[in-house]
Design a protein around this nucleic acid. Structure first.
Lengths: 170, 170
DNA sequence: TGTGGCATGTAAGATGTTACATGATTTG
DNA sequence: CAAATCATGTAACATCTTACATGCCACA
């Protein structure tokens, strides 16, 4: 149930509407825990039912601003420190690698070359994000930078792997 | 719909029963595309309905051995070469990093230290797997080794990141 | 006044997890 | 003959994706 905690985490920095959260997801969490608009609104409803968030204000166009409650903060902290991360990494990119014997060596090398190129672009994109985050001082940005560094390091490792793997195919 | 292709991929190396596939998933694909027993049997039924696999033999205890069909092989190859990998990496380990400001610096460092240790053990486990795969000559093992190297490289990068990140928290 | 952005919500369907349920065969 | 392993399947529930549906408000 990590979507729930992603929402609580964002609200821990201040109140926001579903629409605001949507944008925050797209900017900062999209690489770590993507969520869709419909998921978000549904989750906000459930969080309010569970008293982990409150509607703190209402604005134009039916805008509802949500704020995290004490119970919500407690739940968030509990999740961070006491709940073991699930770490199920599913990768259909890597799954294909297992079955590369079913295509020609040229196709297999092409596949790996394509993946290397793709991840190179992704790393470039993250470097753009880094500039965007550079001068921000809020908590989310500070820790977001740690997370970004993770993406950068793993992206580079992935790129090097893909280039190495291409060379392994005879 | 990658589960479908994971099953087709395993069957591309030879016929197997649901039970056999389950073990293959646990040994070789668990780090890349985990699947549960109930998912597997359901998927085999659907694959048979779609004529991508056949029941090639029946054995004791209701055992049904499935074989991939020509249409199934074509679908597998199409998926490998023509379908762009989805690459949605969800990580609740990394999600927590965004929200570390909500716990004390000691707790935050403890969290990262714990993650470093955890991934270290995972890398050790993969090194055990490497020995297991070392002398095998089948396709799945050969390409499995590429995949294993991926896990090793990214695991090490992840460990180094966690140690670095711990040092970043003042 | 119209277009783009703000804003919320519902519904259907696919996919994944956990638990339950049953029984046959092999092997010590 | 008991226990482990082989072997298949169903049901309930949670989660995620995609599409649909609606309408207000600011600004050019």
């Amino acid at each position: 149930m990590s979507l729930r905690h992603a929402v609580l985490g964002l609200l821990s920095e201040g109140p926001a509407s579903g629409y605001d959260l949507m944008k925050m997801f797209d900017i900062s969490l999209s690489n770590v825990w993507p969520a869709t608009q419909s998921q978000l609104y549904a989750e906000l409803g459930k969080l309010a039912d569970a008293d982990l968030v409150d509607v703190s204000a209402e604005g134009p166009r039916g805008r509802k601003e949500y704020a995290i409650t004490e119970a919500g903060l407690a739940e968030l902290r509990h999740w961070i420190t006491e709940v073991e991360p699930a770490r199920v990494l599913r990768s259909d990119m890597l799954l294909r690698v297992f079955f590369l014997a079913q295509v020609s060596p040229e196709q297999a090398r092409g596949y790996l070359r394509h993946q290397a190129e793709h991840v190179r672009k992704h790393v470039e994109h993250l470097e753009g994000l880094r500039e965007f985050l550079e001068n921000r001082e809020d908590n989310l940005s500070a820790y977001g930078r740690l997370s970004l560094e993770y993406g950068l390091r793993l992206g580079k490792a992935q790129q090097e792997w893909a280039e190495w793997a291409e060379g392994q195919i005879g």
